[in-house]
C-alpha cells in the first residue's frame, strides 16, 4: 500500500491487496474443489427432471409451521403438469428424515442421492415413502415407477 494521490490507483491497490489477502487466507478448500470435479459423475441423460415448484421455507409457510411448533419444510417438485413429488424435510441434527408421496400414487422405488452415497426406500401402493438418516447437504430424489422414465428431482440442499 504505497501512498498515492490518484484515486484510481489507490482503488486498484486496495482491491489488489484484498484479492491477495483473500487468495491467501480464504482459498477454496481442496475438498470443495474435489466435490465439484466429482459432481460431473451425477450427469444423467436418461431421467426426466422434476423441477422445484414450491419450497415452504421460501414463501412464508415456515412461519405458519413455526406457530404449530413444527420445523418441517415442504418441497414440491413436478414433472410437467401431471406428476408431482411432495417431500417433508424433518431435521435432526446433521441428519434428515424425508417423508412424502408421489402423485398420482403408484408403488415404486425411491433413491435419495446425497454426499454420503445413496439411501433407498420403497414407495407403497399409496405413493408414500420415508427415508431416514439422510445426511444434510445437497440431495436429489430418484423416483422409479413402473412404465415411466426414471424421475430425478433438482438438487436441493436440505
Amino acid at each position: 500500500m504505497s501512498g498515492t494521490n490518484d484515486p484510481n490507483q489507490a482503488d486498484a491497490e486496495l482491491l489488489g491487496d484484498l484479492a491477495s489477502v483473500l487468495a491467501r487466507t480464504d482459498a477454496v478448500p481442496g475438498h470443495v474443489v474435489d466435490a465439484a470435479y466429482a459432481a460431473f459423475e451425477t450427469r444423467d441423460l436418461e431421467a426426466q427432471l422434476a423441477v422445484l415448484l414450491r419450497d415452504s421455507a421460501a414463501d412464508g409457510a415456515r412461519e405458519l409451521a413455526g406457530v404449530r411448533g413444527a420445523s418441517t419444510r415442504l418441497l414440491t417438485f413436478s414433472v410437467g403438469e401431471e406428476r408431482f413429488v411432495e417431500v417433508d424435510i424433518d431435521p435432526d441434527g446433521e441428519r434428515r428424515t424425508l417423508t412424502g408421496y408421489v402423485v398420482p400414487s403408484e408403488p415404486g422405488e425411491l433413491v435419495v442421492e446425497h454426499a454420503g452415497g445413496q439411501t433407498t426406500a420403497g414407495i407403497d401402493a399409496h405413493g408414500r415413502f420415508s427415508a431416514a438418516l439422510v445426511p444434510s447437504g445437497p440431495v436429489r430424489l430418484r423416483v422409479t415407477l413402473p412404465g415411466v422414465r426414471p424421475i430425478l428431482t433438482e438438487w436441493m440442499p436440505v
Binding site: 478448500p29 470443495v32 460431473f40 451425477t42 450427469r43 447437504g137 445437497p138 438438487w155 440442499p157
Partner: peptide, 13 residues
C-alpha cells in the same frame, strides 16, 4: 460448501 456443491450439481443437471 453445500451451496457451492449445489451450484455445481445444478450446472451438471
Amino acid at each position: 460448501a453445500d451451496v457451492v456443491q449445489t451450484t455445481w450439481l445444478r450446472l451438471v443437471e
